[in-house]
């Protein structure tokens, strides 16, 4: 790992507004974050803590209300910066009428690969995610796990330097989850920078070098996993609190 900063957020704030431009939600509030080349960085937090919003600002899909977001030292809207990026969204968003092969060819086209390069890369990735047998079936009929594998392969089509994974193990069975974690470790070992979010703290603990915990749009803790001193779950509950347990207790009483 070197000290080159791949992703940098400084004082980033995001306020969503309604049709009349009235502020509705302050999703991210004054966030500072930096991800170095070659590290696996975990963005953790409860639902609604601002993880996905942060990722979408890094991808250039949302514009920050205030602050600065840089990817490879450039604006996230820069095409040259985005050419070095792979993205796996929280849900496997795909065109249901395309087959698995056509889906990967489509993303190969979006990465600017030629038809031959795209076909070669598609075959490699279908083999990697073990979907060669169903390559010519429409992804609309795939199970959640199979769709997740296609989405993961799509994120890797352009041989990205930075991989952004939003809940990468969401919807996968334990075997597939383990395979994804092994894949993330293998990609990181090859020098890829990975930013991931997860609700599953065990997943983050297994693969992340460094984590940041978000709550109500603010960073409440940041540090290396190896230096936490205990389990990530204990650390997380200490920082975020187990509010859900209290709510449940109130409900039951």
């Amino acid at each position: 790992m070197n000290e080159e900063i791949v992703i940098s957020l400084k004082g980033v704030r995001k306020t969503f507004r309604d049709f009349w431009l009235r502020p509705t939600v302050n999703a991210v509030d004054g966030l500072d974050l930096s991800v170095r080349r070659g590290e696996v960085f975990g963005l953790l937090g409860p639902n609604g803590s601002g993880k996905s919003t942060t990722i979408k600002m890094i991808l250039g899909l949302l514009d920050p209300t205030a602050g600065e977001v840089l990817m490879f030292g450039r604006s996230p809207r820069s095409l040259s910066a985005r050419a070095r990026l792979g993205y796996l969204p929280e849900l496997s968003y795909m065109h249901p009428f395309l087959t698995a092969r056509e889906t990967l060819m489509y993303y190969a086209g979006l990465c600017g690969l030629s038809r031959n390069e795209g076909a070669k890369r598609t075959a490699e990735l279908l083999a990697m995610v073990k979907l060669e047998d169903v390559a010519n079936r429409a992804v609309g009929g795939f199970s959640k796990g199979m769709a997740r594998r296609v989405a993961l392969a799509s994120a890797l089509v352009g041989r990205p330097e930075l991989l952004v994974l939003d809940e990468p193990t969401s919807g996968l069975d334990p075997v597939s989850t383990k395979e994804v974690k092994m894949l993330v470790k293998a990609l990181a070992a090859n020098g890829m920078t990975i930013l991931m979010t997860s609700h599953l703290l065990a997943d983050a603990e297994d693969v992340c070098d460094r984590v940041m915990i978000l709550n109500h749009g603010k960073a409440v803790a940041e540090g290396r996993v190896a230096e936490l001193g205990g389990s990530l779950e204990d650390f997380f509950l200490a920082k975020v609190g187990s509010a859900d347990e209290f709510v449940l207790a109130d409900f039951l009483s």
Binding site: L85, Y87, P89, Y93, H95, Y107, L110, C111, G112, G158
Partner: peptide, 12 residues
């Protein structure tokens, strides 16, 4: 359905 998100996360 979110496919625009994925397309626009590429260099498009």
């Amino acid at each position: 359905t979110g496919t625009a998100q994925v397309a626009l996360a590429h260099s498009v």
